[in-house]
Design a protein around this nucleic acid. Structure first.
Lengths: 380, 380
DNA sequence: CCATCTTCCTTCGAAATCGAAGACAAGCTG
DNA sequence: CAGCTTGTCTTCGATTTCGAAGGAAGATGG
């Protein structure tokens, strides 16, 4: 209940616990391989972690030709993480255990335009609800994290120059949450969280571009297995100038940004001009699935424009895969036209082993990503 | 003389030696800070390295408020590295000691179009010359490295699909050199070497884009302080489609690639159509400096096109700096129009702390980069 | 000139890590 | 089902690293 205790796991123990918690290893042998430590050292520390009650042995895994490994798991009673992914009109909220596995996930309507204080209060209340209803008694809260649909300065945890979060500019979200919870706190861009969450579903691929095509267009970048933040703004592709016949002004003050043509918001606006009412990106997908030709044409054009932008980035970054998520990703024509554009125009060398696919991580991927990043702050 | 001995420095000793060799540390205290090891452990290992003769103490550094550090240096007699940077018509070749400091550097004319065998034989002969003339007797060769103006598969050390290296496609350069030298061998793209070399001149900046504007247009990417290779093709920007009125076919089979408008080769072709003869990018720079308006206009246009491509990458990667090198970088209008395009069109968040500057590393930067990468292979 | 501070480096016992050897527990194969 | 292979995990002595304490050498400031 308390929520004031800090976990005390230092050094090697912390490293090992983190590896189990983040799903990078689930047996002693695997821990040894992944951590680079000697098997004997791993056994020693794991023993201690089990004695402390932070780790538990849970049955045995599948053999790969020899003795079966004894599967390790972070103890369900070791603690909880409260995570959220705030969108413009909806938020997903959940409780995770310290291995990043969700206990509950809920989607609730909200309005981010009410401003940071109101929204964060609302979020805290929602967390309280979840904890009261689903939090096992006696299991302490260990960390709080949230994704927001705008850029976040990683050093300060402030939202900076968000285009779709009125009233939030420069608001110190991390500080505000820290004051309320006195726990490790995570604030991160929503596409970045999605990227981290997705990365878990693509083992072996160390360089990923994860596109979030929803009302806006975001992108999270995984380089060498880790989230690339740059100075905080990395991953933006929505304000790239695209090649079109017409000319439209974007909210950022420049003409012909990708966002102005290919974002869910832009598609919905275009559809409404054609007399087709939609309220969220999923409605656009529904129109496409129902074979409404105007919707399909618009989505296909959006895919082509996105693909042309990705072309530049694929040549440059040479990633292993492009993963497309977000509300619009369910529209088949979007993916196929992105694929067509990228494969047509990129260097063969860059597309040789390039995979372009839709999300594998499921609807909670961003929450799992938040859990993964938050664990780094909580353990160690 | 021999050239057959392998260095034997394992584990921690190797790590420390590498840190000194690459210039990341030059005293015991600094080693401790940089390596994360305890000061006592560092002292112990350094003592051993000095006993082995690989490291030497050399005077004392400048005090920063307390006792002066005893400066450490890799022993000049510990070994030599032979490095080259092959261009289309010229090559720079040099000998470095194991701290990456050049003993000699020479520029010689060559012709890469003669094919891999002939060129690599020529290079080996040049190395022999340098060793005979400047190699201290008894100091063994420890590694050989070269940059090439085309993509290199990092796994195999083969040149793949080079556009300006006729006859080299799929040639196993690393293997060929390895057979001749029986030493650690490095083969890397020229722009990547330049990037690594430049990175040493920009301490504190961990994310760099280093543009090489010569006959071709290359780019090396430093992410998180390390060279980003992707699957081997990372850093290509020359085959990005640019926004122009006219339409020109590129050698890659697509229309309107950046290379077809903004590379040194393209500029020289355009100038020759105007009756202005140039043989190398430096000649273009000379025309600009002499105030030939056609040349200036062409260079300025090239800068604008390059800048527009960089716009996308800056928003996406959010680097600390863009460093411009290569033969054309001496042309002032190139830099200023790149700057103008990037600052005009990028997100304020991305350009806030972005530096756009010309090379600091000097003409040997690529050779120093080769040395730096080669050291990783030689030590440890 | 002398006390005091800072930084650099070493000394030495405590603690962590390693690695080789072997016990243990499967799957596979004839 | 015996023997082989593969992979997991533990035991134990040797090695490496740590960290606290202190000495060494210079900066600073009366």
């Amino acid at each position: 209940m308390s929520g004031k205790e800090r976990l005390l796991v230092r050094g090697t123990q912390g490293d090992l616990l983190r590896l189990v918690a983040t799903g990078h290893a689930e047996s002693r042998a695997q821990l040894a391989r992944v951590s680079g430590l000697a098997a004997s050292s791993v056994s020693l520390r794991v023993e201690e972690l089990i004695d402390t009650g932070l780790l538990v042995e849970e049955g045995s895994g599948t053999s790969s030709g020899g003795r079966r490994p004894r599967r390790l798991r972070v103890s369900p009673t070791a603690g909880l993480l409260a995570v959220a992914d705030l969108g413009a009109h909806h938020a997903r909220l959940g409780l995770l255990d310290l291995s990043g596995v969700p206990l509950v996930v809920e989607e609730r309507a909200c309005d981010i335009a009410l401003g940071p204080e109101a929204t964060l209060d609302w979020m805290a209340a929602a967390f309280d609800d979840l904890l009261a209803a689903h939090g096992p008694p006696g299991v302490p809260l260990r960390g709080v994290g949230t994704g927001v649909p705008g850029p976040v300065d990683p050093a300060t945890g402030r939202v900076v120059s968000p285009s779709r979060m009125p009233g939030w500019n420069n608001f110190p979200v991390a500080e505000h949450l820290g004051a309320r919870y006195d726990l490790p706190v995570l604030v991160e861009n929503d596409a970045n969280l999605l990227a981290v969450g997705e990365a878990r579903s693509w083992p072996g691929l160390d360089n990923l571009m994860v596109l979030k095509a929803g009302s806006g267009i975001g992108c999270g970048v995984i380089v060498d297995g880790r989230l690339h933040r740059g100075r905080g703004a990395a991953g933006d592709i929505s304000h790239v100038r695209v090649r079109t016949d017409s000319s439209v002004m974007c909210s950022c003050g420049h003409p012909d940004c990708l966002e102005a043509y290919a974002s869910g918001a832009a598609l919905m606006a275009a559809l409404s001009e054609l007399g087709l009412a939609t309220r969220r990106p999923a409605d656009v997908v529904a129109l496409v699935e129902n074979g409404v030709p105007e919707a399909t044409a618009l989505v296909r054009n959006a895919g082509r424009l996105i693909g042309e932008v990705l072309t530049v980035l694929v040549n440059f970054l040479n990633p292993d895969a492009i993963v497309v998520g977000g509300g619009l990703s369910a529209a088949e024509p979007l993916i196929s036209s992105i694929r067509a554009a990228v494969y047509e125009r990129c260097l063969p060398l860059a597309t040789r082993d390039l995979e372009i696919a839709v999300t594998r991580g499921g609807p909670d991927a961003a929450l799992l990503g938040a859990g993964s990043l938050l664990l780094d702050a909580v353990l160690g």
